[in-house]
């Protein structure tokens, strides 16, 4: 690696900036087929409650246009598509083709058709016009984005005035004793479970490391305000394992 090349975190390692996208893609190509089952096992099913909170707080209604960025296997898209009805639209976007394919097949199999579009999209350069969406969500995806500030600016740009961004992401545990247990679980149990269930220890080691490198609650809130959001707030869930950040464009 050249000394002059700018680098960025990839888990606990530093990689050249242009390589992070490829490496993240590699991780998600590897876990795509087992992504849902692993989420259930890793979070003991609690990720469903976190996502349900997100849906509840969105306040979404029929006719709304929604962007589910880093939508992966389509958990949020499915709920939003039912709510926006035939007069609304949901766009499931992900940088990883394998994840979009898994999500698309899953939703079609469950009868969710007609008001969902699927696209491959880079969060740092969204191919949508300004002021397009009533709601944008990015669930468990922002920590994998190379330039988070740029992604937040793009999300602000594509939101309609009055629109809302919801970021559901692993964050910093607020309870010190629980934080120690959580660290042990993340670095000792989680990768082993990844090996056992998905035969992929390295990818799950990366997931644990990337969570620790992600900005904490207050830092991310400040980043949202700097990106242009007129109001930002967050809500800790499960002692801060996950935080739901919400930003509004007025």
């Amino acid at each position: 690696m050249s000394q002059n090349k700018p680098t960025i975190d990839f888990g606990f390692s530093d990689v050249p900036i242009e390589e992070k996208v490829k490496k993240v893609k590699g991780v998600f190509d590897s876990v795509a087929s087992n992504y849902d089952i692993m989420n259930d096992v890793m979070s003991l099913g609690v990720h469903r409650i976190w996502k349900r909170h997100t849906i509840e707080l969105s306040g979404i209604r029929p006719g709304h246009v929604v962007l589910d960025l880093a939508g992966g296997t389509g958990d949020l898209t499915k709920a939003f598509a039912k709510r926006v009805g035939k007069t609304g639209r949901v766009v499931l976007a992900d940088i990883n083709e394998s994840m979009v394919r898994v999500g698309r097949d899953r939703l079609i199999n469950e009868g969710i058709v007609g008001n969902v579009d699927y696209t491959i999209a880079n969060a740092e350069a969204l191919a949508f016009p300004d002021n397009t969406f009533d709601l944008a969500t990015i669930a468990f995806g922002l920590r994998n984005v190379t330039n988070k500030d740029k992604a937040l600016e793009e999300l602000y740009r594509v939101l309609k005035p009055g629109g809302q961004l919801m970021i559901l992401e692993f964050s910093k545990v607020t309870q010190p004793l629980f934080a120690k247990f959580y660290d042990f679980y993340s670095f000792n149990i989680l990768p082993k479970m990844g090996k056992l269930i998905a035969n992929d220890e390295a990818s799950y080691q990366y997931l644990a490391e990337s969570i620790r490198m992600h900005p904490d609650q207050d830092t991310l809130k400040q980043m949202m305000l700097t990106a242009g959001f007129d109001k930002a707030e967050y809500l800790n869930m499960s002692e801060g394992i996950v935080a739901l950040h919400r930003g509004w464009k007025f």
Partner: peptide, 18 residues
């Protein structure tokens, strides 16, 4: 509670925009 009716599916949620 807000009942969102789309086709013959009912979604129930605790907040609503508007």
């Amino acid at each position: 509670l807000y009942f969102l009716i789309t086709h013959t599916t009912v979604s129930v949620q605790t907040t609503l925009q508007g």
